[in-house]
Amino acid sequence: MNTAQTAETTLQAEDGMDQYLTFMLAGEEYGVDILRVQEIKGWSTATPLPNTPDYILGVINLRGTVVPVIDLRKRFKLESIAFGQTTVVIVVKVADDGFGERIVGIVVDAVSEVHNVATTDLKPAPDFGGAISTDSMKGLTTVDDKMLIMLDIDHLMNKDVLKDFEQTEQE
């Protein structure tokens, strides 16, 4: 890989290109729109919230703001692992339909890279009937022969989290 070129391209997103922060989750690489990422911080214990789904780990203190943290492994029904050295919380801003902006932390195995991806390079994800609907994915793309799954963080964090949550509450 040409590192010089990578550095150059990571600095500036070109026209028609979006920058994605990618992270690892059970050996798969996922990406989120980098403009949504507010910060990345190390994992620290969260205060559990009662009567919430298991993938909501609780709330943490982010410089005076109370922010919910979601375990993406559990959310995707992946096998849970012990949080280790590389475990990080990616703090993202989520546009809430009609409610303004919310801040949510997602716990992932490790952060990976920043990639420039052209919108045209995103292929729609095939329906595979998994734990999350394909609606939560912007699409799939290939960078350096690796498949990246680009997530639609708004959809994932609002629709799914809260919908599932409300369902569990009603049940």
Binding site: T47, L49, N51, G58, I60, N61, V66, V67, P68, R102
Partner: peptide
Amino acid sequence: IKSLETNFKQLQGISGATILGDGTVAL
């Protein structure tokens, strides 16, 4: 008092959260 609603949603039985002296969140 910090609202849980700001970034999450209101939970029954909990009126909010606060940050304690050691930086952790308490309900």
